[in-house]
Each structure stands twice: as C-alpha cells, then as structure tokens.
Design a protein around this nucleic acid. Structure first.
Lengths: 389, 389
DNA sequence: CTGAAAGCGCTTACAG
DNA sequence: CTGAAAGCGCTTACAG
C-alpha cells in the first residue's frame, strides 16, 4: 500500500495482486470505461473476473469505473477529510477487489510517499546482519513499506553517495545502522529526510535506537570480577572504540580497580574483519605477552571463538587458565567447545523499534524519540574461576 | 547513474553528489536560467561553486544552463545517436560538474530505467546470505544499480506479492534467490520483467545461475567412498529435496552401491530452521537407530556442526566412529572441533554472475544465459577412515 | 540538431 | 463532492 494513508491508525489491507504487463487497454472514453465497469459488475459477465480482464490501471480508470472523479478517488485513497466515509470505503473496496494500487512513481513525482525506506548498513560482515535484515524486512512489510538496501562498509564517501541516492529515489525515510560518519555531515546529506540511527558511533541526538554498550561492558566485568578476575584484556578493541572502551573502564573503576594497571588492550597491527582468524592472531599476541590477563574480553563472538580455539590448541584450559567472553550471542557460541559467555543485543527488538521510531518520525518530523535496548548477559562455559581445572 | 545509458559498454561515471532539499529555486524564465549559467561559469563569481548554489535540478535547467534544448539533453543522456559526440560529452561533463542526475521517478513514469533491481531471497536464515547480499550490493553499485530487498521465506504467496510490488515500483530487473515457487507461476508474476534465477528449486529454463549440487554430492560421496565408507546417512534432507537427493543417489550408483540398501535419510518430524539445534536432534535420531551409517552427510554446516557436537558429547569419535560432512563452507566450520569437511559454493562468484546475466537479459530480453557454478570440496578433520581412532 | 507539445499517473489548488 | 486544469520531471513522436 506504500503508506498512502495519512491516517496511520487506519491501516487498510489492500491486496497486492498481480498486474499483467501486457493486457493494458487504456480507457479513452467514458463509454468504454463504463462498459468496462458494467462488465465487472454484471453477474452474467461472459469473462470471469480474472487478472486478464482487470483493466483498471490508474486512478482515472478507477474513478470512471466507480462513477467518481479522479479528485475524489485521490482524496479517498489519501484519507483526506473532504470525502465522506461511505465514499472512501467504496473506493477502498474497489481497490481491494480490482487489486489496483496507485503508481508509487507518480506519487513520488508529486512529492508524496513512495513506500520506500532506505536502509544503510555500515558494517556488513557480522552474522547478526542477517537477523537484522530479516527483521527489518518483516516489520517494514507489515507496514507496507519496502526496504532499499545499501552497504557503506564504514566508508563515509560511500555513505554520502548512498544517502544522496536515497534522496534521489525519494525514499520516505532512512534507517542508518552503525554509521561511522559524523552526525552533522549525515544530517546535511539527509537534507531533512526522516531518519533513525541504530547504534551510531557518534552520540545520538536525533531519533535513534541505542544499544546500551556501556551497561553491556558492566555486565561482563561484574560477572568476571565476581569470578575473581582482577586482570583484564580487551581482544580486538582499544580506546579507539570509545563505547566499548569507556564502558569497560568505568566498569573497572566501579569495582575500585585501576584500569591503567589491570586493563590491557590487544589489537592487530592491521585489523581484519573481526572474525575467527583475528581471534587466533590475537590469542597468539596474548600468549606472547608478559603475564597475560586472566580475563579476556573479545570484541565479538567470532573473535572470541577464534581466540578460544587457539588457546585450547595450545593446551590451555578455558576457563581454568583463561576466562573468555564474546559479544553478540551468535547461535554458534552455544555449539563450540567451550560454549562462549556473551552479550545478547536483541537485534530483532532493536529493528522493530527502529521501524517504529522511523514511522513516527515520518508522521511527525519533530519527534525525536530514542529507544534504549538493554543488553542481556548469557553465561556459558567459557568463563569461570581462575585456576580451577 | 541509474542505468541511463543505452550503450552498456560506455559506462559514464557520474558523481552522485548531494542535492540539498531546501535550496530549490525553480528557473521560471530563460533569463534567470542564463544568469544562473553565467554565475556558474564566471570565474569571478561571488559565490563559490558549492552545493548550496547548485540550482540545476532538472533536465530543463540543464538544457538552459548549456544553451541546449531539453530534447538534446535527454537524448544525450540516453545515448541516442541523433546527438553528436561533442554535444553528448558537453552534457555529460556538465552533469558531472553540477552533480545533476535525472530524476529516476520521472524516468520510471515514462517506462524507462529506474535503476532499481528487485532482490528476493527465498531462504533468509543461512549465514551465507550476508555474503550474498554484500556481494550483490557491491556488484550492483558498480553498475550504478540499487537493490530493493525482500524475503519470501519460502512462501509462494509472499513471493507473488513481492514480485507484484517489484513490478509496481518499476524495477529494471529481478534477482530471485532460492525461489520455491513454480517456474511458470513466477514467469506469470514477472509478466515479462527481466529476471535471473539463482539456485531455483524448479529446473532452470531461463536466465539463471545454477550451482551444481549434483556434482557437489558426487564430490562428497567420492571422498567418503575413498575413505572406505559404504553406509551413508542424509541428515536433514530426503527425497523431497530432489537436487540433493538425486545427486546423492546417482553418486552412490556410480560406485556400484545400491542406494536402497546403503542410504538412509534422517529428518526431523517438524523441521526447524536447519541450524545447530536441528543437527543435535538429528544426531540423537541417528544414534537411536539400528546400525547407524558411518558416513553422515548434513544438509548444511550448521546442522553438521550441531550433529558433531552431540556425537562428541556422547563420547563418539569423529572421524573414528562417524565421518561427517557439512555444506556451505561457512567460516565457522574451520574453527569448531573437529573442523568440518564441506562444500564451498562460491557465493560471491555466483552473485557476480547473477548480476552479469541479469544486466545482459535487461539489455537483450531474448538472452537466456545460464551460468554453472562448480562446487569445491573442502576436506577437513571431520572425515576419515572408519575405525581409526 | 531546435521548439513546441503531448503524455506517463498521479496530486492539488481553483472555481463551482 | 464535480470538472477542468496545471504541475511533478522526465521521454518521445512531430514538424522544421
């Protein structure tokens, strides 16, 4: 339905039925159109009411078919108050029956909704992206929107291009996921286009969905501290990843620890795609360091699993020698040995909120709603007391 | 660039720069437009040539700016032969410089290219989908197309709706990945829209990319047979998955084995999402069966890893007691214990071919190119001689 | 090549 | 509510 109702609370379910491409017969005269209308309505119509003889292809056709004016049909479809309820229902019912939908391109040309939502992922390589995309697809379809997907791969230049394209194709709104660009730049690129940010690197000052990474780091540190750990290693992230790092630092301080002494960061000289192979390399670095920390906190599950794999291969015990945490709560984390303690980010809920907030922002551009997603700690076999074998 | 060249071999790189939404000043008179043109061209123009004073927003503006007619500009952009090379280059250069692009909506309304490609995934839950989406995004962007993504979740009704929507938004073509619908139905829903099928369930009779699953099953069986295995179990698929099953049967027959005797199928009463949990359940079923086969072939890596996990938990040796193969060659397969023998499907190459073939089909609808992607066997630690501990 | 015009399928003032 | 019309930004015959 391409969001063509201006009454968001009255969602009309119009079927999206097929419109054969080759059966177009324009209705040039009112007579033809009326004859057509009769054919549709006549109970003893020779032809069955199949897709093949559905000739209502424009609002003008529909208007003729219903004996209304184009004006009325347009207003009815767009939920304007000038047309009375009974007429509107008649129009909507006919659309249902005929499977007719106004052409979104023509709507877009007139500055109306196209039913398109631009989706821009900053970081495509996480397995969570599949869940997010599937969820977005589901929630967007529920509201009769379509997602136009693009991936910027953390490249601001690409992001600029993508947003420009979104504007050019007149999307109704944009969902930006893990954007790495400057907030003010993005706003400039958007040029007023409604947008919701999900987990931006820059602090959120507009409509956004914000996963509480600081709390997540607190949950992990609390868990490890309770198990007796006093030395911590960050695997694959450092102070250059402020959200993770600052959360980690503040969590340590909350326990009376001095991060300068108890926290070390292990990063690769040339960071890869934060996957297993990185984890293995990072574990090598940890092992080659003096007095490695006992609690290792990986930037994500893949790195964590890779690191665990290398440590186990080197005959270290997890959690006897090292406790190890991941991040993301991927399914796979439960099926590796040892299963990996992690943080669940509720990607599905997060996407649901993103769609909700975007639609609110489209309806009311001054809305600046922010949703916070709470982390969930998943304790598994990769964390335990140090020295317990 | 929205595919606005009718000469596919001459891809013009036009910048997609930002178009501020609020600075629109329509050029109502030729005078205004010319003055504008002068301002653009004057070297001592007061205002710098920023986004802010870029006022060429339509082909008409561009035509006035260049002192050409709208007709010429349109023809130049669309690569028609009537306009001579020098003029075309001038137009194209001005577009570059001004960052102007014709409005794709208006083009679409006129039955021209919108630059949109519909992408429909039938099976969203595989981790490979991320790779496929990222690859499609990359290759489509290279050709200045945009992907509109939808997921049908193996529901023909949803697929019908999605294809109808694609037509309504005038996509230039469709990429259907793992569609579960009937081929003739799809063709009807497409109504002539150019499309390429990737790994359809129905045999491919149009433009398509076809992963050679039969050969894949042969590679696996050859490998297992060479290792001495004579009894085989299919984990998570049966004769209802014809490609897998028929390939498996023919491979066994090629080795002189009788599938009726040496092949058993293990499937869940209510199949899940073909992930780890399914694998665990399937392994339970295998273990509870009489004389379980020694070679287990999982429908995919996740199921294989889950099954392996359960077998190991039950103190069976892999590959001592069971050899186990997966399918997909997910990264994770290398990092579990034991690492899992699998089949690589070259998803990136597959997507590249899909885009290539689609663009060829758009350019020439009678083209019916079919690409075959060869499987690659990845031998890892989960397969070996039976009884070797 | 130019110029003037119609048309794609909508939306929206404008007068009745 | 109707009717006649202009406009969104393009493309495309049509006459010169």
């Amino acid at each position: 339905m391409y969001g063509i109702n201006s009454h968001p609370d009255v969602i009309v379910n119009m079927p999206r039925e097929i419109i054969p491409a080759n059966d177009f017969a324009p209705c040039d005269s009112v007579d033809t159109a009326l004859a057509l209308g009769e054919a549709f309505m006549s109970k003893k119509s020779a032809k069955p009411k199949t897709d093949e003889n559905r000739k209502v292809r424009s609002t003008l056709d529909l208007a003729k078919y219903l004996g209304l004016s184009e004006w009325t049909v347009s207003r009815a479809i767009n939920g304007h108050p000038e047309v009375k309820q009974a007429t509107r229902e008649r129009v909507l019912a006919a659309m249902q029956e005929l499977g007719f939908q106004p052409n979104p391109l023509a709507r877009g040309l007139n500055g109306k909704s196209t039913g398109l939502i631009g989706i821009c992922f900053g970081h495509p390589r996480s397995p969570l992206v599949v869940d997010k995309i599937a969820s977005l697809d589901e929630f967007l379809h529920e509201k009769s929107y379509r997602g136009v997907l693009a991936i910027s791969t953390q490249n601001p230049e690409a992001e600029k291009t993508i947003l420009s394209d979104f504007r050019r194709m007149r999307v109704d709104g944009v969902i930006l996921i893990q954007s790495y660009s400057q907030r003010d730049e993005i706003d400039r690129w958007l040029g007023g286009l409604p947008a919701v940010h999900v987990d931006p690197v820059e602090p959120e000052i507009g409509p956004s969905v914000y996963f509480d990474r600081k709390q997540a780091m607190h949950l992990l540190v609390d868990h490890l501290y309770t198990l007796g750990h006093r030395t911590f290693g960050a695997l694959g992230f450092s102070a250059s990843n402020p959200w993770r790092w600052n959360g980690l630092v503040s969590a340590l301080e909350d326990h009376g620890l001095n991060p300068a002494k108890c926290l070390r960061s292990f990063v690769l000289p040339s960071p890869g795609i934060e996957s297993y192979a990185d984890g293995i390399q990072l574990a090598e670095i940890v092992l080659s360091s003096k007095k490695p920390p006992t609690a290792l906190m990986a930037v994500n599950d893949l790195v964590g699993i890779g690191a665990a794999r290398h440590l186990v291969d080197c005959k270290f015990q997890i959690p006897g020698d090292f406790s190890l945490t991941g991040f993301d709560d991927l399914d796979v984390g439960q099926y590796v040995v040892p299963s990996i303690t992690s943080i669940n980010q509720s990607p599905r809920i997060s996407m649901r909120r993103a769609v909700e907030i975007l639609l609110k922002t489209i309806a009311n551009p001054s809305s600046r709603e922010i949703a916070t997603i709470d982390p969930i700690l998943k304790i598994r076999k990769s964390t335990g007391r140090h020295g317990h074998r």
